[in-house]
Design a protein around this nucleic acid. Structure first.
Lengths: 104, 104
DNA sequence: CGAAGTGTATGACCGTGATCGAACACCTGG
DNA sequence: CCAGGTGTTCGATCACGGTCATACACTTCG
């Protein structure tokens, strides 16, 4: 057996406002969130995003989004699936995620 | 005559989302906005904020806030007075400023 | 078992932005 | 007119964050 180490999550309630704003103030992460919002939950793996960075940077961005409590991840075999924490994050920071998803 | 050059303002409607988020993702600027929100409009000069940076940095922060359309400035003699653009900014980015002002 | 696929960790590089000191411009009050 | 106050600009410095290449860990499939 011996799974891979489960990803560390931070609950939105424990996320400082500054951390949330910093996490969302990045074009790559905004794009990830929008793509994620346009898909069914738990259907998108980390590598499935149409983003213009290599996988090391991509992995970093997901760690930031996790640390901001806006994304949840679940390992399934070799792949890591994602979902938006829309409900909980929206309770902690009302309107913020909607703002990012709405776009300009 | 010959006033000082009037500060350049950006209307919230012309502010990209990323610019707004970046502007708000800074502890000094957040503190400025909160102090400003706790005062009557047009009563606070740039130097009147209890902030832990020198005046050069302070001037920079106000320029950023102006560029994000969240603060308006008006010169009166030697001093520059400030006000929050609560209404217009709130229309462009609903809930965002409230989130910053509410705090943690 | 071995190869390919998925994601993380590490170290380095680099650009951006926050900061400061100093110099400057402008206004006001003696 | 001059001194002090207010704020900006400029140049330099410094820290932080985004990026990459590489190496590694784990899974799946042939």
């Amino acid at each position: 057996m011996s799974h891979r180490a489960a990803p560390e999550h931070t609950h939105p309630d424990d996320v400082p406002l500054l951390t949330a704003l910093s996490a969302l103030a990045d074009p790559v992460r905004i794009q990830i969130l929008r793509e994620l919002a346009g898909s069914q939950e738990w259907t998108r793996t980390c590598g499935s995003f149409d983003v213009d960075v290599r996988k090391a940077a991509l992995s970093h961005h997901f760690a930031v989004l996790r640390g901001a409590g806006v994304v949840e991840q679940k390992d399934e075999g070799a792949r890591r699936f994602n979902r938006l924490r829309g409900e909980e994050f929206g309770t902690r920071f009302p309107g913020l995620l909607e703002l990012v998803l709405r776009g300009d």
